[in-house]
Design a protein around this nucleic acid. Structure first.
Lengths: 216, 216, 216, 216
DNA sequence: GATGAATGAGATTTCATTCAT
DNA sequence: AATGAATGAAATCTCATTCAT
């Protein structure tokens, strides 16, 4: 007979909570929000209804947590990329290459959550739609500010930094969305080079072909 | 001699059918597929349950019809733009400008259906998801072939026509999606110029700034 | 331009009414009361909803008319058989043989109505169930009275004429029901001989084997 | 140590399931399959919609279970009767008497299920109709084989064992059906004697009147 | 903490019948 | 007389969530 320390108990709880989330992510990614029934998650996770509702208030909350995790993870990646950006104009190409490369890697690493973030989060509820829009605009804003700065230095050549940011992120997401819907799981990184080329060219950035060779 | 003119009846039927479709489009666009209940459409359209099911088999069918209409309308627009493309290299910029301009106008003309096509059609059902993916690939393929042709003539400079086509369409859609989620009714065409600039630059096309001034 | 006499008009109406009834009989026999939708009858008859409800008040009425027709036709057959029964004891066997033979022939002649009368009329509504029970008891009563008379003359040997009548009719109906559910349409009359033998023996009637040879 | 005894829970579940079935039997018997709405069963049983669908998939399944129970119970009774049949010719009368007596008792014991089996199971669906026909043929076959055997020994005198079996079972069922539709609760066994007399005579079996006196 | 039986609001759909033309 | 579009009550069933054990 063992006396469990409260800490051990807490760890066990955390593990179960995590297990439910991970399972839910898998199921949501496969079927989408509305076609995923709570029962599907329960069965896949091997837990009871009661447990599910002990750890979470409802289905939407579980989805929202997963969604937030994904957005935060992605924002971290972006912030990391931005942080290493120097003001040195000659490194602009390299910096943007890094931002894109890190984005793709983040999505590839967790295909399920990518699917949730980009596809599965549509049409949940009006409130959620608002949140989703806000998140996407926040991400777009990161690039918008970078572009604005670069524009001042005449390091890039675009008429409108806001629109450019939308198009930049949009092109990345469309590629990922496309990749997610391919039956055979081609390596996402295979698309990295043309993706970078397209966007750097779009921004009017002079970039070294050599930099493109060394990506990933 | 019959008691009524079948033609008049048929016209009335067509009108009612159209009315249901239009109302459904409005409601779907506002609430999304799953949050739209058949009852919502009935109330908004001021018709009875029976009428709805007299004209259509079920909710999904109504959605599918609307979706197909939108896709077909958009494909027509694209084909029109492609048809006027000459082989004359110096007109490539103009041609692509036309394709983008027509696309934006098509979406602006019918904001509701644009919302359905780009946002609301996600997660309906596995079968529908297949159809949706196929449609998007078809549209992307139109551009891919154009890019392939232009590439042979060295009129554009990109490493991969397939990826370029995805990014091209993706950037357009992301702009429209963004516009759709803006509360105020900003003119979509306001974004036309930077959108074209971004993509023409991305493709490495030499374009005349004058052409951009005269759009719309 | 012809002037139709009212009589001709009436005849046309009657013909249409009959056409609807005949078609309904066919459909009811095939699918049963509840699995037959008014629409099925309309389509099969090539008429409109309005016409149907012009000639009849509702679906149940149509069924009831068909049912009554069948019962009446059957009762007529029975009465005919009873009418020819003489009080001559030596003809009792022949008379019962005739009653059974005529019954079988009546059912075979109109398989559809047989199906409606014996199988398809179950579970329509509580009121209809009452009517149905009453009709069956009426038919049974015909035989009960015959048996009662024969019993007085000691022409048959049974403990209870009422029960005998139930069993007599029941055995006939069970044979027909069985026959109706055979996939291949065997000749019902093939069963006539053993059916008669069974019941005459049951009643303790002395019968001439020769009479059995000449049936039908 | 778990928080509850699974056994007790299971027993409660079984009891509830049984309660639903019994209630459904009562309602089906009273109103028939089509006039019984799921709601009627819920109200009569005092349960919620959810409970009903937790225990059963749909209304038809409940009906089918009840129907199968009845058929199986009846077949058991028959098999029991058949098992005690000896090859001793002089006991043939007694054996058939026993078979009929047990049949009647089985039906009397559960009037509701008898009603379902004999009356209420008509016209549910084409598939069910097939099953029903097959079941009835199976029961008829039990008697057919007995009759065939007795025929070889010349213990009975009938022209066709198959038809005789149909008529034998048909006569029993018609009596029960009749009894079911009587308003007052007449004892079914009251009819046993004339029923046996009719059928034994029909089969040409020599029976002892004494045996008939001691039935039930 | 865990379980899963129980709940019931609410969604979709059917189909007999009506009624304007 | 005929048509068939329109109606809407009513039926079945789903499934997120609750709660007694």
């Amino acid at each position: 007979m063992s006396y469990r320390t409260p800490k051990a108990i807490q760890e066990k709880k955390d593990a179960k909570r995590r297990h439910i989330l991970d399972t839910a992510a898998k199921v949501f990614a496969k079927r989408g929000y509305y076609n995923t029934k709570v029962r599907d998650i329960l069965e896949e996770a091997g837990i009871s209804t009661g447990s599910f509702y002990f750890y979470f208030n409802n289905k939407e909350e579980v989805f929202e947590i997963l969604y937030d995790e994904m957005i935060n993870a992605y924002v971290s990646v972006l912030q990391e990329a931005v942080a290493t950006m120097t003001d040195n104009a000659e490194h602009i190409g390299k910096s943007l290459i890094k931002a894109i490369t890190l984005s793709l890697r983040a999505f590839q690493k967790n295909k399920e959550l990518a699917r949730i973030m980009l596809i599965g989060s549509v049409g949940i509820s009006p409130q959620f739609e608002k949140k989703r829009t806000a998140d996407y605009q926040k991400i777009s804003l990161v690039f918008e500010e970078i572009f604005r700065k670069l524009l001042q230095k005449k390091a890039i050549r675009i008429p409108d930094p806001k629109v450019a940011a939308i198009l930049f992120t949009g092109s990345i997401y469309s590629l990922i969305t496309n990749w997610l819907q391919e039956d055979d799981s081609v390596e996402l990184v295979k698309y990295t080079k043309p993706l970078i080329a397209y966007n750097l060219q779009a921004l009017g950035v002079q970039y070294d072909d050599l930099d493109l060779e060394n990506i990933y």
